[in-house]
Each structure stands twice: as C-alpha cells, then as structure tokens.
Computed example of a mutant assay.
Amino acid sequence: MGVSDKIVRLMKKKGLSRYKLAKESGVPYTTLIKILDGTTKNPQIETLSAIADVLKVPVDYLLGRGDIYDIGWAIREEREEQGLTADELGDAIGVHEEIILDYESDQMPISLAMAEKITNAFGLSYVAFLDKYNLYDEYLPPQFEDDADQYEAFKAAVDRDAQSDAYSYTLTPKEEHDIVKDLERIMADLESNQALAFHGEPIDDEEMELLRASLENSLRIAKMVAKKKFTPKKYSK
C-alpha cells in the first residue's frame, strides 16, 4: 500500500473530504490532489507530517518506515491487563482510538518508534514488552537472568567497545583453546536441556548453529575485553 492509498483509506475512515483535509492540514488543495492521484511521487516530509497530524497517524506509517507486524495481539493483552481502553491508550500516545484498534487487529503495521511509544505508555521498554510476550527472538544467556533489557544494554556496550581499541588485543592459542572448551561445555549443557526452545518450539539444527556462533562471538569478546582491562598500559601496544 502506497502513501496515497494509505491517506485515502484513512480519509474514508474519518469521513474527511479532500477539501477538508487540505484545509485542516494547511496543505494546498492542488498539492494534496497531486499526492492522492500519484502525480507527486515523493511528497515533501513537511507536507506528509501536516497530513499525518490531521489523520492522527505517525508520518512513519505513511512512509512505510520500520513497519512491524504480528504484535497487535500482545498490545491488546497488555492494554486490557492494565485496565486501559483503546481511547485511553490513544490519548496517552497522541493518536486516535481507531488507530490503536487497527494496530491491535494487525490491520495497520506499527513503526518501531510508535511501538516504543506504546510500550513506554505501559511502563515497559520495547524489549521488555517483547520478552514478556515471548516475542523477543534472541537467546538470553543465563547470566542475564532472563532480563532482556540488561542483555540489550550489554550488547550496546559491546558495540561501543568495538569502536575503541578493545579488539587490538590478540588472543593467545591457550585463550582460543579455552574459548573452544567453554563453548563446547555450554553447548553440551544446552543440548542436554530438553526444555530449550524458542517460542515453545524446539530449536532446530540451523538455530542451534546460529546460537553457537553467537555464543562463540560473545565468549571471544568477553575474553578480549577482560584482557584489555587487566593488561598494563605499557604492554598494551
């Protein structure tokens, strides 16, 4: 669905004529007509923002940026658990009740920015929300005690370290050997745990290999960061 199709669909839902949308958004009528009939292929962001404000949708929705599907049911469950109506949630994040209902029924995809806004209104981070409803699709190492937020913070810190000189440290053959041993031990423990699953489904061979690669990378990073921390500066070059 293109920009013009989305605008027309929302205009129909709200009972807005072209003239009224142009008047309320401040967009010249002729400009709006060109957008709606597809003559203007790349409308200016300021124009789309003005239209989106009247339609009570994020401009990212019109542009199709970062669309997220299949989380509407979880949003509805969390809203109902917190005793909120769709209207109250809409007021909290600045959109119309109908938009919330469209999100919940997956009739309208959600941008990442809007998903974060909604989950923050619930008092949850987006990651914590995904984890609560088994939508978080990454393996959580045991040391993070099922805290997805903590794991995401750790990964962000690792990414920052990647921009520093942390990885100028070369691991010795013994350290590489230790990583292999630790990895095999962890994988053996995981494979012996019959309850290990993603979203209630047993991990298949491909997922197990991805998990192995992720764990190996994490072990190597941890070893390098530790080496940097405990190596005297005069020997760090």
Rank of each mutant, 00 (worst) to 15 (best):
I118M: 05
G15D: 10
D149G: 09
M187F: 03
K228E: 11
A92H: 04
S164D: 10
E80V: 13
S17V: 05
G38S: 06
A195N: 11
I51C: 03
K20G: 06
R220P: 02
A162L: 05
P142Y: 06
D137Y: 06
G64L: 09
N193P: 03
A213M: 08
L55N: 03
E145W: 07
T85M: 09
L135N: 02
K6Y: 10
Y136H: 07
K34A: 09
D149T: 02
R79P: 02
I45L: 13
A222D: 14
A113E: 14
F230A: 13
A157W: 12
S218H: 13
R212E: 04
R65G: 07
D147F: 10
V225A: 10
K12D: 08
N42V: 06
V225R: 11
L10C: 07
A115H: 07
K223W: 12
E138N: 04
E97S: 13
F230M: 12
D106V: 01
E97V: 12
K227S: 13
F129H: 04
E209L: 15
A52P: 03
G66R: 05
A74V: 00
Y133I: 02
N120T: 11
E88V: 09
E209I: 04
K13V: 14
T172C: 04
L140S: 07
V225F: 06
A115M: 05
G123F: 00
E152S: 07
Q44A: 13
P141S: 12
A121K: 00
K23N: 08
F122A: 03
T172L: 07
S218L: 09
I75V: 08
Y167G: 09
A148L: 03
S111D: 07
D204I: 04
A113N: 15
K237E: 09
K117D: 04
A86E: 01
A92C: 12
K237A: 11
D147M: 09
P43E: 01
H199L: 05
D159E: 15
G90H: 00
P58I: 02
P173S: 09
F154S: 08
